[in-house]
Design a protein around this nucleic acid. Structure first.
Length: 226
DNA sequence: GTTTGATCATGT
DNA sequence: ACATGATCAAAC
């Protein structure tokens, strides 16, 4: 039986993640027989994929959670020395067209965040990628309060999209959940309704969790060993 | 083009 | 310093 399917409980997954805590990127990469790129500039998702492989997730992209049998999504989050996240966290693409029938309960955003294994990765500027260490992972589901916060932002954003006003949405909107470009380049296009209800080409967007939100999730955990 | 994984780079 | 808008790579 492959490594990836040997996991039966989320406790087992968490245990695996705990083993990674304190280990360097270089050590994990070496064990998996992978070369550490000089930096992440041309390999932005490299560390995330490395951690998923180290945890036993299936390789490559596919729909659904990283651990389908457990319903768990893995998110690596870059953290500063103080344990606070350096960046926003991408959740999923926003379906700008065909917004009818989508409610928070069946939304991709909620489904993605039902159960998440957060894996902090040291991201201090000046620390070479290979020397960066993995922090203490934590298994998380939104508290009722957190889910309500996300839901309010989501509903506000989705209403604007439904009204054909996606192009007016700025990254400033949303207390904890924001909508920002998510594309290969500024020339990328997808379909979205305009104010007249006609489908027109527009920049693809995605939902992101603000650092302030992930910070409250990670609060209280020692993300990086001292 | 979309979805997977995200971080970069510039303006405020 | 920090967030927004822009972008990188691979699989499909």
């Amino acid at each position: 039986m492959p490594f990836a399917t040997s996991l039966k409980t989320e406790e087992e997954l968490l245990s695996r993640a705990r083993v990674l805590a304190g280990q360097s990127i270089a050590a994990i990469a070496q064990r998996l027989g992978r070369q550490v790129p000089p930096n992440l500039r041309r390999a932005k998702g490299w560390a995330g994929e490395l951690i998923e492989r180290a945890l036993g997730a299936a390789a490559g992209s596919k729909a659904g959670p990283d651990f389908p049998q457990l319903g768990i999504e893995v998110k690596t989050v870059p953290v500063a020395r103080d344990g606070r996240p350096c960046e926003s966290t991408h959740v999923c693409a926003a379906s700008l067209a065909d917004v009818v029938g989508i409610h928070w309960e069946n939304s991709p955003v909620r489904r993605k965040l039902v159960r998440v294994l957060w894996v902090p990765v040291e991201a201090e500027a000046g620390v070479p990628l290979g020397q960066r260490r993995i922090g203490q992972a934590m298994l998380w589901s939104p508290t009722p309060e957190q889910e309500q916060q996300l839901r309010l932002d989501w509903e506000e954003l989705m209403e604007l999209i439904a009204l054909g006003r996606a192009d007016e949405i700025r990254g400033e909107q949303g207390v904890y959940l924001q909508l920002r470009p998510k594309a290969a380049s500024g020339r990328a296009r997808t379909k979205a309704p305009n104010a007249a209800g006609e489908l027109t080409a527009t920049l693809p967007r995605g939902f992101y969790l603000r650092p302030a939100f992930t910070a409250q999730i990670l609060a209280g955990h020692y993300a990086i060993a001292r």
